[in-house]
């Protein structure tokens, strides 16, 4: 079975926010929630880099580890999805996620109660019937069930953001690195997927080494 992953090639991203717009539109994401965003480092400096970031569907997901109701589940493709019917809106996944992926609708409510958590689904919907009206309303479109890849990556104009089977992505990146001679360091890869043995061991991500 394929292991689905996201890769953002920081050498290619031009901060056009096409992925952000595609995601917002495809899933009709509510106001105040950004399932995907683009962050620019060293803006206006030589060596400026832009990176598109969303849920990385980590091998050892912190959101999953801290959820009091175990509303998260891992699909056969390695995606980290969640069940909004079991979410209690405690916000723990939001505190724990390194990438700022889980977010909460912040409407006017008594005691600032949070609604159900929302996050990137890798365009794979949620539990329940694939392609159903309920799934669309709660989680957005289930493109994976239709044999399509996430729209953010599909619409990326420079193909900086690519999504799909890890082995295919690795081949694409390897070829790019060979051609241009640098840039093999994939941002966020080690945090989300560890050293490659994480998935098999199911262990936590290593703490960062001291400089």
């Amino acid at each position: 079975m394929a292991r689905m992953k996201f890769v953002c090639d920081a050498e290619r991203c031009i901060n056009c926010n096409g992925c952000v717009t595609a995601c917002k539109n495809e899933h009709e994401v509510p106001w105040g929630i950004q399932r995907r965003r683009v962050v620019t480092l060293n803006e206006g400096q030589p060596g400026e880099k832009s990176i598109s970031v969303a849920c990385m569907h980590c091998s050892d997901a912190p959101c999953m580890a801290v959820c009091p109701t175990n509303c998260f589940y891992r699909t056969e493709e390695g995606l980290v999805l969640h069940d909004k019917d079991k979410c209690i809106g405690c916000g723990y996944c939001f505190y724990a996620c390194p990438f700022g992926a889980p977010q909460f609708p912040n409407g006017a409510s008594a005691f600032a109660a949070r609604g159900k958590m929302d996050k990137c689904t890798f365009c794979a919907g949620g539990p329940g019937e694939n392609g159903s009206e309920e799934e669309l309303k709660k989680y957005g479109r289930n493109r994976l069930a239709e044999g399509k890849l996430p729209l953010c990556a599909e619409m990326c104009s420079t193909k900086a953001l690519i999504a799909g089977d890890a082995e295919v992505l690795s081949d694409i990146m390897r070829e790019r690195v060979l051609r241009r001679g640098y840039g093999a360091e994939l941002w966020g890869w080690r945090v989300a997927y560890g050293d490659g043995k994480q998935a098999q061991r199911g262990q936590r991500v290593h703490a960062p080494e001291k400089p």
Partner: peptide
């Protein structure tokens, strides 16, 4: 905090 690309303290808190 959308401009924060990554927050490792989340995993520290989790541990």
């Amino acid at each position: 905090e959308a401009n924060v690309l990554i927050q490792s303290e989340g995993n520290t808190w989790r541990q």
